[in-house]
Amino acid sequence: MPVSGPAVVEVAHLTVAFGERAVLRGVDARVGSGEVVAVMGANGSGKSTLVRAVLGLIPADAGQVRLFDTPLRRFRQWHRLGYVPQRLGAGSGVPATVAEVVAAGLLARRGLLRPYGRGRQAAVAGALAAVGLADRADDPVATLSGGQQQRTLIARALAGGPELLVLDEPTAGVDAASQEAFAAAVGGFVDGGGTVLVVLHEAGPLRRLLTRALVVADGRVVHDGAVPQDAVGYDHVHPHGPPNGTELGR
């Protein structure tokens, strides 16, 4: 397994339990600078939990997480990190424009009290251009298609100029054309030297960007290496193409 660049994400013996049920059981993982790593696995395997624990959204019961060589508990350089959740939060009882949603991504860099500093509009416009939504800045985000909303979220993560992008199943339920646009946006970030950690059900259009895959099953990493040819071997078999002998480790 090639190890590139200094560690951006390091996970050691990570254990997470929801009540009595262990979801992650002693996971070890490392993402080096410049890598594009997919976390794959069936529904309920713990792949999303792994990424959410890395971000500190879920407390770990045991083990350590380090981001940019700092223990998660003492990590404060949140502007180095961009997070793209699975979908837009449910808290949208009031309309918000695409530009307003993307501007929230600047808070990590600019802090609580001076988010309207100079360059705000330029940063928002730049991030929207990178995902091909420059002409939708003033539209209510609720009027966008699912794929466009997904790209809005990646623009929000990119707006602060992060070094690491963490995405949680970004292409789930998104049409093929939008998936391509999404892959192009991530590709632009990777070309600029960015590091990516992405939870995926299937490699899909992001496959050409991926440098490595971690396959999670039953709370453990069962494969760390080449990207599996398809989502074969954990929860469903696709009618097209046989598994090409990819080592899944189980």
Partner: peptide, 23 residues
């Protein structure tokens, strides 16, 4: 009004706000 960007972020997507390091 002064804290609108931060309060908007928290009310719109609380998890994202946490990953931004907002209190």
């Amino acid at each position: 009004l002064l804290l609108r960007p931060a309060l908007f972020a928290v009310c719109h997507d609380e998890e994202f706000a946490r990953v931004c390091g907002l209190p």
